[in-house]
Design a protein around this nucleic acid. Structure first.
Length: 316
DNA sequence: AATCGCCGCAACCGCCGGATA
DNA sequence: ATATCCGGCGGTTGCGGCGAT
């Protein structure tokens, strides 16, 4: 945390108007100003937000404060075991791409997840590795970065009571492999959250994947967790739904529609939507799924097409 | 009660990429 | 084609809380 600063103290700098800009902790008054402005006007240019809201802050600071603290859709409190598992799992797929991980945990921020990882999970992994006398022969192997935990560490870090331990990915994971089958396991092993996923109102067919990798096509208007099965929507519809989400989100922040604030928008500010939705998604279309054609690199590129887990509504 | 050290987390920093002039 | 601005991201910092001594 940074020390709160009074206006005009030595550690502030000037904006383009020559006004001193505050740094450090936000005061309740500043929070009020920013919150009121955002609720009234929605998101625009952050420099304008800072200026128009009467804040002696740079736009960047306002943006961070809003995203990490003031956003109405933020979920507070400790991470649930399900969230922990999901974070660990997504980190194994994405590495330190905190924003992408956060995009799949509605109500959580990248900063929050990053802090959680660096404090809690890393510490756990460290303890595990120090207590383990037999380092993994594949310790240098990793999917993304060199500090990726190995399989055993991941399992242990997720907790012994966790169904994470039985996830196919971590039972079958070959970290030296970038095979398509591994990616099937990755998707297969996405945590079964107890909350309904209620994803995006998809209208076209998707696929159910259960824990034995049995895939069946389903027609549906809703997506998510179906009593032990995990619904992977067709990526085309994900793309379509993402577009819808973007539209919804734009209206959420549309400064031209200040009354259109939707506090149930679960993906607000998690809008780093990858543009590359196409190619791999088509592999999930049609009666026959050509799993063998899945390409790991392509999937990593397209990993944003994994479902947005929307269990926020059931918490609020 | 006082001190110390660790830890969590809010916020800053620097870099990058895209948009615009 | 270049410069500038802005937003977004990951890494890092350092204050404040809290438990241990």
């Amino acid at each position: 945390m940074r020390k709160p600063e009074n206006n005009g103290n030595g550690n502030s700098h000037s904006n383009s108007n020559g006004n001193k800009l505050r740094k450090g902790l936000w005061s309740p008054e500043e929070d009020d100003k920013l919150m009121n402005y955002m609720l009234k006007n929605g998101q625009g240019c952050w420099s304008d937000v800072a200026r128009n809201a009467g804040l002696q802050r740079c736009g960047k600071s306002c943006r961070l404060r809003w995203i990490n603290y003031l956003r109405p859709d933020l979920k507070r409190g400790a991470f649930s075991p399900q969230e922990e598992e999901l974070i660990i799992h997504l980190h194994s797929l994405l590495g330190n791409r905190w924003s992408q991980i956060a995009a799949r945990l509605p109500g959580r921020t990248d900063n929050e997840i990053k802090n959680f990882w660096n404090s809690t999970i890393k510490k756990r992994l460290k303890n595990l590795s120090s207590s383990s006398s037999t380092p993994s022969p594949n310790a240098s192997d990793s999917l993304i970065s060199s500090d990726q935990p190995n399989k055993d560490q991941l399992i242990a870090a997720a907790g012994s009571s966790s169904e994470f331990m039985s996830m196919p990915m971590y039972n079958n994971m070959d970290t030296s492999s970038s095979s398509s089958s591994m990616m099937v396991h990755m998707i297969d092993s996405l945590p079964m959250l107890e909350h309904g996923l209620n994803m995006m109102g998809c209208s076209s067919n998707g696929y159910m994947i259960n824990t034995t990798s049995c895939i069946s096509q389903v027609g549906m208007n809703n997506c998510g967790n179906f009593g032990g099965e995990f619904y992977v929507p067709p990526l085309e519809s994900i793309s379509c739904c993402i577009e819808e989400n973007i539209k919804a989100e734009n209206s959420f922040y549309d400064h031209r529609n200040p009354n259109n604030l939707n506090t149930n928008n679960n993906n607000a500010n998690n809008n780093k939507v990858d543009q590359n939705i196409g190619g791999v998604g088509n592999l999930l279309q049609g009666e026959e799924i050509k799993l063998g054609e899945w390409d790991f690199e392509e999937l990593m590129k397209d990993v944003s097409s994994f479902p947005y887990l929307d269990f926020y509504s059931s918490w609020s």
